[in-house]
Design a protein around this nucleic acid. Structure first.
Length: 236
DNA sequence: GTCTAGCAATACGGGTGCGC
DNA sequence: GCGCACCCGTATTGCTAGAC
């Protein structure tokens, strides 16, 4: 054991305190928010082990997605193959400095390594008639949105709305936003425009489309129209 | 060639004892 | 009570041998 390749030592000669990963557990969870329905971190070492395992799996997944061999990543992150192996298997809880090195080698933000752990069981329940009335960008008179729920965690999110149009609603085929939109007609009838297409929608009809193109109701055929609108999107 | 397990070196925090 | 030094336990890390 001579000429050991001691590494990652900060300029002041002191090493980063051990257990950085376990210390980050709470901080990481706190950063994700987490609504009333989200799970809490398991108490004690079990949570730390679960986090280490999740981080390790995430590192391996990212490495494989880049078609990198373990030794390539180890070299890029200035770690030994053995150490990287332990981290990927959850056998070691790397220091924050080590995680930063690995994230840099994988060309992802450090937070990305915690992504799989943060994907907790998250749900939202809104009872009938208890949706939240919200104002949306571009909203006009005669047009109301009732938010039916939301999720706080994960990279993806949805916006489920119960939309009600009345005769006061001006024609407005001009919505445009990111994501995929799902529409299901519940009541009434209307002429709906999507890009260059114009279509008549009646109860039971379902329309799914890329919301990046111009869309919106063109003309109401009944005094009141109600439909379910769900927008699927990625968190930015 | 890649990955894993075992071992040893190193560093840090906590506990303890001592002097003031 | 406070500050300091020392010791010990524990965790992190890298190297090496061996398995696949």
């Amino acid at each position: 054991m001579v000429d050991r390749k001691r590494d990652g030592k900060p300029p002041d000669g002191k090493r980063v305190r051990r257990g950085a990963l376990s210390m980050m557990t709470r901080a990481g969870l706190a950063a994700t928010g987490g609504g009333p329905s989200t799970n809490q971190e398991p108490e004690g070492g079990q949570g730390g082990q679960a986090l280490a395992a999740a981080v390790g799996q995430e590192i391996r997944s990212l490495r494989l997605s880049l078609s990198m061999a373990a030794n390539q990543l180890a070299e890029a992150a200035r770690l030994s193959n053995g150490m990287l192996s332990k981290i990927e298997r959850g056998s070691a809880t790397p220091s924050f400095t080590t995680l930063v090195s690995i994230a840099a080698a994988l060309k992802v933000p450090v937070a990305r390594l915690f992504a799989s752990y943060n994907q907790q069981a998250d749900y939202s329940l809104v009872r009938a008639g208890q949706g939240i009335a919200v104002q949306r960008r571009g909203q006009r008179a005669g047009l109301s949105y009732e938010l039916l729920g939301h999720l706080l965690s994960g990279e993806k999110y949805i916006e489920p709305y119960l939309v009600t149009l009345t005769s006061e609603a001006a024609d407005h085929p001009g919505f445009q936003h990111t994501g995929i939109e799902f529409m299901h007609m519940l009541e009434g009838a209307m002429v709906y425009r999507y890009a260059d297409a114009s279509m008549e929608l009646r109860p039971g009809d379902t329309l799914v489309f890329d919301a990046n193109f111009v869309h919106g109701h063109e003309r109401l055929l009944t005094p009141t129209v109600r439909f379910l609108s769900v927008v699927f999107n990625l968190r930015t």
